[in-house]
Design a protein around this nucleic acid. Sequence first.
DNA 1: TCTTGACTTGGACTTTGTCCAATGTAGGAT
DNA 2: ATCCTACATTGGACAAAGTCCAAGTCAAGA
Lengths: 138, 138
Amino acid sequence: MSDLLERLRGRGWRLTAQRRVVAEVLDGDHVHYTADEVHARATERLPEISRATVYNTLGELVSLGEVLEVSTDGRAKRYDPNAHHDHHHLICSQCGTIRDVHIASDPMAALPEPERFGFAVSEVSVTYRGVCPNCASA
Amino acid sequence: MSDLLERLRGRGWRLTAQRRVVAEVLDGDHVHYTADEVHARATERLPEISRATVYNTLGELVSLGEVLEVSTDGRAKRYDPNAHHDHHHLICSQCGTIRDVHIASDPMAALPEPERFGFAVSEVSVTYRGVCPNCASA
DNA sequence: TCTTGACTTGGACTTTGTCCAATGTAGGAT
DNA sequence: ATCCTACATTGGACAAAGTCCAAGTCAAGA
Ligand SMILES: [Mn+2]
Ligand SMILES: [Mn+2]
Ligand SMILES: [Zn+2]
Ligand SMILES: [Zn+2]
């Protein structure tokens, strides 16, 4: 994600300290933070960053396709910087941990034409749930 | 769902007017209402039913496995009385309409052992998104 | 260095949902 | 048929997650 800021500048973004910090927090793929978690971690680096700015920046990153929104349960959305490699999610039903997973067949191909009801289907996500090893042993 | 009330009585439920009305609203499969939509429809039949009771009853029905919770976007959860036939969902990304769909292959089989990371995987849901015919023509 | 439109901020507000003490009632007991 | 009481309902306070806005700040081009 080091070149993310470059791409964003290319799109006319002003490079503010706040945006830089949000990008840094999301850097190092494989995280799935809530907005509040992003805010907490951003605050460690830039104490006065506001919640509103974190929400604004996350929303912009999602619009640009640089970050994915993951709605797991009915709780807070999670933000996923791993937007450039197709993947799905495996979620622990007890502790909420999320892992990226890669699956063996294309789920888009599994939806027969008559089951599409005239929709222009453009996206599919597969969510697996179960108990993680950590929760199982406890 | 006519025998739902029988099953519930068998489980020791008191058959109150409120519970009856919530069950009636969810009757006739293929609906995916939010709690507030259930409340609005329940109010037409029983004007003084409270929001708290609708939430309580929906929660109980979910615990009993009679109704499924569907978390689509980050908005209100939807309640799905079609709990006894496996199915997945196709959602219009513009208007939010939900359709039940049946898929051709088993998505559980698509997750290879090494991608399970020691989880005891018990559940999988597939969500398709696209533009419905109605929204496409508008 | 100056200027200005874009960005940030704190707080009010909204939506969705939970919790609780007070009140009501379904259904078994008499 | 009536009584009893444990369970259910209610309204309103509260909480979590997110949006919106007017006022102040600042990145970056001139
Ligand atoms: Mn992910
Ligand atoms: Mn359904
Ligand atoms: Zn776990
Ligand atoms: Zn639509």
